[in-house]
Design a protein around this nucleic acid. Structure first.
Lengths: 212, 212
DNA sequence: CGGAAAAACTACGAAACCGTAGCGTAGTGT
DNA sequence: ACACTACGCTACGGTTTCGTAGTTTTTCCG
């Protein structure tokens, strides 16, 4: 939206203002969700005048949309050579994110809003893509290698991986401990197709030990 | 909260008012989530004076809390005699609920609010219990029968069942079609423990047919 | 039918919010 | 050095909201 790239000799002031505003907006989203963000409070908190905010964003909605769009964290796609290793890294990373404060406090708000606002729905779709693409890539790559049953829908495999984690964090609110993550991984690998497993079906948490 | 039981000769008027208010509140929650409910609008919509609303609920929060607490739908626990049959019925029922309008539009809002408001967190916990208890019952019953591996945590099994459904509905927003539901069921039964399966590991969707 | 309880109505006060306008000031790029 | 632009500040208008008070009207119960 804001072309930050390009050495067009952009004014430093706008960059500083925009950064400060976005930071404060993010901070307020952490505390109160999307509904907890008011332009007045953003202005108050970051020291940027309200008029300046409206100079850069046409409306409060646009500001929120912009802030949400910048939440995508580029997750590096691992490549351990095997599906199990890749997924282990990805799932552990996701679990860490879910245990930390941060977007666990924001995502529900975005999802709620996306249920009604089409613009936010688009933003959520992109955010979701950026979060889940690594998983999908790993699964599809394994599928091409033949490590996964061909009749499994890759998106469904991903769902069986991350769904339980999300459920655990937001719906059941039970602890997201290592045993749970291990079990999810174990299950998903079973699902995926058994071709890649080496007799791990019997020992549930056994795999988690060495990998750590 | 409101003791509706008791033949204390309750006044009809209060019953009518409370019912109308709660209905309008629910309706507004459907349209705009928790944030979309204002006492003024509730009053406007159901024809009950605002002062009357405040006579029955001390604050807007209390009204929302009450409305949320009454969302629990008593799901009958099926008993087909087998884990597969029970789960099939339960999961299909859940998928139907997720496809319909109704609490798919409200739950994200509750979850978002529960992230910050302890009272709503409690309400959400109870709501969650009422929704998930049938699943947990089915799984634990199967476990007692020995149809499930003993080293599986029942709550994790439930998570592997319903997590993907929730994920699909709210996070990925991909269609919640029959094939997906079948695959989830298939997976979860594998997870649960293999004791109950009869060589179905090879045939993915095959199981869903006979069970019906 | 009559007393009592509940509800409706009107009005209010205080706060928060969005978005805009005008004007003086300070910083930037050339 | 200078013109330009962004910024801060103050102030406003309009709307929405929460919650309360006082008064009158309707409705129920015995």
């Amino acid at each position: 939206m804001v072309e930050a790239v390009e050495p067009v000799g952009r004014d430093k002031r706008v960059a500083r203002s925009q950064a400060a505003v976005l930071a404060a907006t993010y901070e307020l989203m952490l505390e109160g969700g999307l509904a907890g963000v008011s332009v007045d409070e953003v202005s108050r908190r970051c020291g940027v005048a309200k008029t300046t905010i409206y100079r850069h964003w046409p409306s409060r909605s646009a500001l929120l949309l912009d802030a949400c769009s910048q939440m995508g964290t580029a997750v590096p796609v691992p490549d351990t050579g095997g599906l199990a290793g890749d997924l282990h890294i990805l799932v552990e990373g996701l679990a860490d994110q879910l245990r930390a404060p941060g977007w666990p406090a924001i995502l529900p708000s975005i999802i709620d809003a996306a249920e009604r606002d089409p613009d936010l729905a688009r933003a959520h779709a992109e955010l979701h893509r950026s979060l889940m693409d690594p998983f999908l890539d790993a699964v599809e790559q394994a599928r091409r290698r033949g490590d996964i049953r061909g009749d499994r829908d890759p998106t469904a495999v991903v769902a069986s991986l991350v769904g339980p984690l999300f459920y655990r964090r937001w719906f059941s609110r039970e602890p997201l401990d290592a045993a749970f993550v291990d079990q999810v991984l174990d299950v998903a690998l079973d699902v995926a197709g058994a071709a890649a497993r080496q007799g791990s079906t019997s020992g549930g948490g056994a795999r988690s030990g060495p990998v750590r």
